[in-house]
């Protein structure tokens, strides 16, 4: 495996859960599939349509999102909204993200007491 392939595997591992946090956070304001895709990619999340659309239905099945069809416009759209439970889970996930970010930062900038590497 080349360096690039290795990196992209690890990046993929690292990003796996982030789309869930981002979606649950964005959808506190109701949104539909394509709008969410636009919002996420504008915010810097590399997410593809073919993973996002099935994910939304999965989160709905888990009770973290609710949905309703809006037929007021010319094109009927399925709007998703984060439930109370979804919001609580998103909050817990964001806390964990913050904790991990701090932990990684602490490891990366060792304080005086932390013993350095062998090199």
């Amino acid at each position: 495996m080349t360096m690039d392939a290795t990196l992209s595997t690890h990046l993929q591992e690292l990003r796996r859960g982030t789309v869930v946090v981002a979606s649950l956070t964005v959808l506190r304001e109701p949104g539909y599939g394509y709008s969410l895709l636009e919002t996420l990619s504008a915010a810097g999340f590399e997410v593809e349509a073919n993973t996002l659309y099935p994910l939304l239905r999965r989160l709905e099945a888990q009770g973290l999102l609710t949905s309703s069809w809006n037929t007021d416009e010319a094109r009927p759209r399925k709007f998703y909204r984060t439930t109370e439970q979804g919001d609580a889970i998103a909050a817990a996930l964001r806390d964990e993200w913050t904790r991990l970010d701090k932990a990684v930062t602490d490891l990366d900038t060792p304080a005086g007491t932390v013993s350095g590497s062998d090199a």
Partner: peptide, 15 residues
């Protein structure tokens, strides 16, 4: 899924 997927595709094409 039929309805939702069509809308999503049409949205993307429109954009």
């Amino acid at each position: 899924i039929d309805r939702e997927l069509r809308t999503s595709i049409e949205d993307a094409v429109e954009a």
